[in-house]
C-alpha cells in the first residue's frame, strides 16, 4: 500500500533540495549576487568608510575625521535648505500626482470601450527620460521666447510673454511639478487601475441594494477604503521619488540656489567639488531619513507589513479580543 503524504514530502524537499537544483539556483542567481555585491553593497560600505575621512579628490583617504563630516552636513544651511526644497516639492507633487493618477484610473476604469488604449497612451510618458522631458519643457514649452507654447497661451489671453520661467518664483515650480507629473502619472494610474480591478463587484451591488445611489458616496464608502494599501504604497513611492529628484532640477533650474533638492546638493559636494567625505556623509544621512520615513509610514499606514499584521488589523483584533 502506498502512503500519500504530500505535506511531508514537500516540506522535506524544501529542506533538502537536490544538488542539481542547488547548482542551477546558483548559476542563475550568482551573477545577480555578484552584481549586488560589487555595484551596491561594496559602494555603500566604501561610502560609509569615506564618510569618516577627509576624502578630498580621493577615494583612498588617509585622514580620519570621525563624525566631523556628519556634523558639517547637518549644520550646513545649504543642506537644510535642500531639505526645505524637497519638502516644498513633496507638498505639491505628492498630492497632485495622487489625485490626478487616481482620477485618471477611475475615469479610464469606467470606459466601456478603449480603456486599454487610453491606459497605454497615458502610460507612454513614463518611458521618456527625465532629461529629455526637461529639455522639452525648457526649450519648447517654457522658454522665454514669444514663440514658446506657454507664452503663446498667455498671448491668447492678451498677456505679455514671460521671459523668466526658469528663475522667477513661483513660476519655476510650475515647470518642476508639471514635468514630473507628466512623466509619472501614467505609472501610478496603472497601480490604481490594478487596485480598482481587485475591488469586489459584490460590494457595490450590496451597497446599491442597501439604497446607496450617489457615486460620490460609493467612492468614499467602498472604493477609497479598498484602495487603502495601494494609496499608502503610492504615497510612499511618490515621496521616495521626490526625495530622489535630480534630473529635472539640474536640467531646468541648474545647480544653483533657485531650487536645489538634496541630490543636487550632494552632486555639487561629491562630484563638482570632489569632496567625497562630505558627499558620502550626506548620502548616508539622506538614506537614514528615508529609512525613518519608511518606518513611520509602516507604523501609521501599514504599507509593507503583511495584511494580517497591519496596525489597523492588530487594533481590530484587540477590540475583538476585548
Amino acid at each position: 500500500m502506498t502512503t500519500f503524504a504530500p505535506g511531508r514530502k514537500a516540506s522535506s524537499s524544501r529542506r533538502h533540495p537536490r544538488r542539481g537544483e542547488e547548482l542551477t539556483f546558483w548559476i542563475f542567481l550568482a551573477p545577480f549576487f555578484v552584481g549586488l555585491l560589487i555595484f551596491t553593497l561594496l559602494p555603500i560600505a566604501w561610502s560609509a568608510v569615506l564618510s569618516l575621512f577627509d576624502a578630498q579628490a580621493t577615494v583612498y583617504p588617509t585622514i580620519f575625521v570621525g563624525l566631523r563630516n556628519y556634523i558639517d552636513i547637518v549644520t550646513d544651511p545649504d543642506f537644510l535648505n535642500s531639505i526645505g526644497t524637497f519638502l516644498v516639492f513633496t507638498v505639491f507633487i505628492v498630492p497632485v500626482t495622487l489625485v490626478c493618477s487616481l482620477g485618471l484610473a477611475l475615469l479610464v476604469n469606467r470606459l466601456p470601450h478603449g480603456a486599454g488604449f487610453f491606459r497605454t497612451v497615458i502610460f507612454l510618458p513614463t518611458a521618456c527620460s527625465y532629461v529629455v522631458a526637461s529639455l522639452i519643457w525648457k526649450l519648447g514649452l517654457f522658454n522665454g521666447l514669444e514663440s514658446s507654447l506657454a507664452n503663446q497661451v498667455l498671448a491668447l489671453f492678451g498677456q505679455q510673454p514671460i521671459y523668466s520661467w526658469l528663475n522667477q518664483f513661483p513660476l519655476f515650480w510650475i515647470l518642476l511639478v508639471t514635468v514630473r507629473l507628466w512623466l509619472q502619472i501614467g505609472f501610478y494610474m496603472l497601480l490604481f487601475s490594478a487596485a480598482l480591478q481587485r475591488v469586489p463587484e459584490q460590494l457595490y451591488e450590496a451597497a446599491s441594494i442597501d439604497g446607496v445611489r450617489s457615486s460620490w458616496r460609493m467612492f468614499w464608502s467602498i472604493t477609497w477604503p479598498q484602495l487603502r494599501s495601494t494609496t499608502s504604497a503610492v504615497i510612499l513611492l511618490l515621496m521616495i521619488a521626490a526625495f530622489q529628484a535630480f534630473d529635472e532640477f539640474y536640467n531646468l533650474v541648474g545647480a544653483g540656489p533657485t531650487a536645489r533638492p538634496p541630490l543636487v546638493y550632494l552632486y555639487n559636494r561629491a562630484f563638482t567639488q570632489q569632496d567625497f567625505g562630505h558627499g558620502s556623509a550626506g548620502a548616508l544621512v539622506l538614506t537614514l531619513i528615508m529609512v525613518v520615513v519608511a518606518l513611520l509610514q509602516n507604523r501609521f499606514f501599514g504599507f509593507g507589513a503583511a495584511d494580517d499584521d497591519s496596525p489597523r488589523k492588530r487594533a481590530s483584533r484587540k477590540k475583538v479580543a476585548a
Binding site: N167, A255, G256, P257, T258, N268, T272, Q273
Partner: peptide, 16 residues
C-alpha cells in the same frame, strides 16, 4: 569649485 559655488549662490540670492 566650492568657492565658485559659494559666490554663485550668494550672487543668485542677491540678484534674483
Amino acid at each position: 569649485n566650492e568657492i565658485g559655488q559659494a559666490m554663485e549662490d550668494a550672487g543668485t540670492n542677491i540678484i534674483v
